[in-house]
């Protein structure tokens, strides 16, 4: 069964249609890359999945559970939405790390706040805290940041910040990890280190959706590629198929800009 099913998703900003009838599904452990030019709706799609935007129509299902149904207002309660968000993680283009917390603090914060809501929190406080810290440290080590844990975001490079942000998203063990152009704010030298980390996650069969302009990377890492144009999914398939034998003229046109360099 698919871990994620998106059906007929629509989204308007005022009178502009940004998403038009978006449907796709994703299997557990797969990596989906979404490519397309700026303004094609890629970011909005990710924001809808993370409940940062409310779609105007359609359905979102995770593990068979309906998280969002435009026809059913009961799926839109604020308190419920907070829990549903936890199915997804989101890594932002501009990192959005919390500047007043260290790298370690950034990774631990949300988990600790969630732990506070547990009934046994008061009794097992220290134990819970050290568990969370241990996990956070191992995540940061996995990201190659073992000697950067006590640094504040402004003391880190862009690539290091983005790796902290990835660790922060992973700390909550989301079913699906989303990346919104994770390397677009980085210079080419730093892009590599972030892509390497994402590749590592793909090798561990982390279910991911990646919005990216790094075509070579998308081709290498994905199990599925979606090409979006003007709010629609224009082309969808295996990476070889989309990159080598695109059926749509618009896709060819888009890809040719990258191959020409």
């Amino acid at each position: 069964m698919a871990i994620l099913e998106v059906e007929h998703l629509n989204k308007n900003f005022e009178r502009t249609e940004v998403l038009k009838d978006i449907s796709f599904s994703l299997e557990k452990g797969q990596v989906l890359s979404i490519i397309g030019s700026s303004g094609s709706g890629k970011t909005t799609l990710l924001r809808c999945l993370n409940f940062l935007e409310r779609p105007g129509g359609g359905k979102i299902r995770v593990n068979g559970e309906t998280l969002f149904d435009a026809e059913d207002p009961s799926t839109m309660q604020e308190s419920e939405i907070r829990k549903k968000r936890l199915h997804f993680g989101l890594v932002f283009q501009s990192f959005n790390l919390f500047p007043q917390y260290t790298a370690l603090g950034n990774v631990m914060l949300a988990k600790e706040l969630l732990a506070k809501a547990q009934p046994d929190y008061k009794a097992r406080r220290k134990e819970i805290h050290s568990e969370i810290e241990k996990e956070a440290k191992s995540l940061l080590t996995q990201m190659g940041l073992e000697d950067r844990m006590e640094n504040y975001p402004h003391q880190l490079s862009g690539g290091q910040c983005q790796r902290v942000a990835i660790a922060r998203a992973l700390a909550l063990k989301p079913d699906i990890l989303c990346f919104d152009e994770p390397t677009s704010a980085l210079d080419p030298e730093l892009t590599g280190e972030v892509l390497k980390v994402i590749k590592g996650l793909a090798d561990q069969e982390t279910t991911m959706i990646i919005v990216t302009h790094e075509m070579a990377f998308a081709r290498d890492v994905s199990s599925q590629v979606i090409f979006m144009d003007d709010g629609r999914i224009l082309e969808q398939g295996m990476p070889e198929q989309v990159f080598e034998n695109p059926t749509e003229e618009r896709t060819k046109q888009f890809l040719s800009r990258y191959t020409q360099g």
Partner: peptide, 9 residues
């Protein structure tokens, strides 16, 4: 937004 996607109130 970062707080929201991390499930914070």
């Amino acid at each position: 937004e970062a707080g929201l996607v991390l499930g914070m109130t």
